[in-house]
Every structure is written in C-alpha cells, then in structure tokens.
Amino acid sequence: MLTVSMTVNGIAVSADVEARTLLVQFLREKLGLTGTHIGCDTSQCGACVVHLNGKSVKSCTTLAVQANGAAVTTIEGLAAADGTLHPMQEAFRDNHGLQCGFCTPGMVMSAIDLAQSHADLSEAEIREGLEGNMCRCTGYHNIVKAVKAGAQAMTAAMRR
C-alpha cells in the first residue's frame, strides 16, 4: 500500500491505495465521488474526465499515485456552496444538452477546459474539442449549443 495525498475539490485528502488503483476508482470508491463515471474503461469515451491541475484528463487512464500532490476537480466541485450551478452546467440545462446524463459529467469537465483554453469558440472547434467524449443519446447537437452558451457565460462572468 502507498499513501497518496491530493486536493480534491479544494479539500485535502489522503488515503492508502494499491499502486494499481486508478484515479477514477480512488474518487468513486475511496471518496464516494460517484459523479465521475466509468463508461468504457478503455480510454475512449470521456465519461471519466476530471481536471488534474486544471487540465482535463481521463481518470480511468491515470493512476491515483500519479495524482499524488496534485489538485483534482470533479463535477461535484463545480457548483457554488449555495448550490448555484457553474455557468457550463447551467448552459447544459438551459440547452437540453443531456438526455440520460451518463456522459454529462465528462462532457462538462472537457467543455470547461476547452472554454478556458480558447477564446470565442466556433462550432467546429467545439466539435473537435469534444473528440474524446462520446454521447449515445443526444446526437451532440444540443451539447455543442450548450458548450457555446456556457463558454460565453464563463467569459461574461470573468468580465464581471
């Protein structure tokens, strides 16, 4: 067993894990943060995307020990303490960007990283930026609309 310590959604956590424990298992099974989903477990679908030091990564293809000392943000860490949704979450709701919701946590985490690293996203950039996230329900159209609106709302919130 190895001890890992990291900050998850702003809270310092520490636990003993096997070296082979995946970051997604650590989050779901040790910390009970089941908002991060496992869709494929083969690095393809993006349901497991979280932010590792601010960048989107697939937590099913990252070892918990590789995140030792890092800052991790999951879908649970986005809304404000009073329950106010993050602008990207709000945009998914407003634009009907989800149906069953299974892909949504990963979509939202990827979308926030995308919006933070690009100004004024075009539709093509959004579709390309979501290359690593799969959705079996929506046909992507409303997801793209949601990301566009969410990115604009994030920029507006920053200006304020």
Binding site: D113, E131, G132
Partner: peptide, 9 residues
C-alpha cells in the same frame, strides 16, 4: 493526436 485528454497526458 487522439483527443484533448490524450494530448494533455
């Protein structure tokens, strides 16, 4: 290469 998450790691 791959997708943004693959490129980040």
């Amino acid at each position: 290469i791959g997708d943004p998450q693959v490129r980040n790691r």
